[in-house]
């Protein structure tokens, strides 16, 4: 079970200069399903792959609204995410109350990073087992940050975390230079392509496992504005289920695939797709790490 004798408390360095508990926390992030984030000059978007813990369970939500102008995608321990996102909400609220100013995105991310860092330096505590992709918009424009349990917060043009996120990263690295000037529809299609690359061979993006969050001006082309006040205001909004059907179809069209998607995504075949996912969804049976990237510095 133990990797070595330096991992039983998180305040002792190994001779190799590692904090093993922190490394393990980063592994917890990799076991969560993938989340992708991209940013253009006007928008920031998050795309996540939802899992369900079993046939009888609903899909676990991975997108959390923090404030009108900030939202996060999570990968890892959902319960740790709840604690951290609640802290972010408090920070956002306190900025609004005290200064009548929406909290600058960098500062709310730095806030949780500082909290996570103290967990790596105090005896008897454990690091958070969750990673965030944070999107937001403030006076300095749209932003995308990654927060990780090691207490770091870095800004990205595009990034991915979670299971098999290296595949997505490969796609993003190949394409990110076009993101800055991309419109919302194109940005989302890049995101879907990256998200698709994190799937195992026999699995596909569907309306039930894909959810998308957007911050930035509304777009008639990609959004059903009538059903979301937040979208009309350009605030953080989440699209899932039937609302992403059009986006998935447009994306398949752009790849020259059948618009309806692969057969097993059709209603009749839906259960089998879910069944396959239930295995990877259970905490006890994490999928093989695959080609996941080493996330420490």
């Amino acid at each position: 079970m133990f990797r070595n004798s330096y991992d039983s408390d998180n305040t002792t360095f190994s001779p190799q200069g590692k904090l093993h508990q922190v490394e393990y926390a980063l592994e917890a992030v990799k076991q969560g399903s993938a989340a992708i984030g991209l940013r253009s000059a006007t928008h920031a978007v998050l795309l996540t792959l939802k899992r369900s813990t079993g046939e009888l369970a609903t899909y676990q939500k991975k997108l959390i609204r923090i404030d009108d102008h900030v939202g996060v995608a999570i990968a890892g321990l959902t319960s740790d995410a709840r604690v951290l996102s609640n802290f972010m909400r408090q920070q956002a609220m306190s900025s609004k109350m005290l200064y009548n100013r929406p909290i600058p995105v960098a500062r709310v991310v730095q806030g949780i990073a500082d909290r996570a860092q103290t967990n790596t330096q105090q005896y008897g505590r454990r690091p958070y087992g969750v990673g965030f992709l944070v999107i937001g918009r403030d006076e300095t424009g749209p932003h995308l940050y990654e927060f990780s349990p090691s207490g770091t917060a870095f800004e990205y043009y595009a990034h991915s975390i979670g299971a098999r996120s290296q595949s997505a990263k490969t796609y993003l690295e190949k394409n990110f230079e076009s993101f800055e000037s991309a419109d919302l529809a194109t940005l989302i299609q890049h995101g879907l392509s990256a998200l698709h690359d994190t799937l195992q061979q026999d699995k596909h993006l569907s309306t039930s496992n894909t959810s998308i969050a957007i911050i930035g001006p509304p777009s008639d082309e990609v959004e059903n504005l009538a059903s979301s006040g937040a979208a009309k205001r350009g605030n953080f909004r989440v699209w899932e289920n039937d609302d992403v059907d059009g986006l998935l179809r447009a994306w398949r069209r752009s790849r020259g695939e059948p618009e309806d998607g692969p057969k097993e995504d059709e209603p009749a075949a839906e259960p089998s797709a879910e069944q396959a996912q239930s295995a990877e969804g259970s905490e006890q049976a994490p999928e093989a790490p695959g080609e996941d990237v080493v996330m420490s510095e």
């Binding site: 200064y99 009548n100 600058p104």
Partner: peptide
Amino acid sequence: ALSLSDSHPALHPSQIYAFLAN
């Protein structure tokens, strides 16, 4: 000091005023 790392603009007059009112 914070703006040195995130380049966020300083508090606007209305925001300083909100702080004072509080």
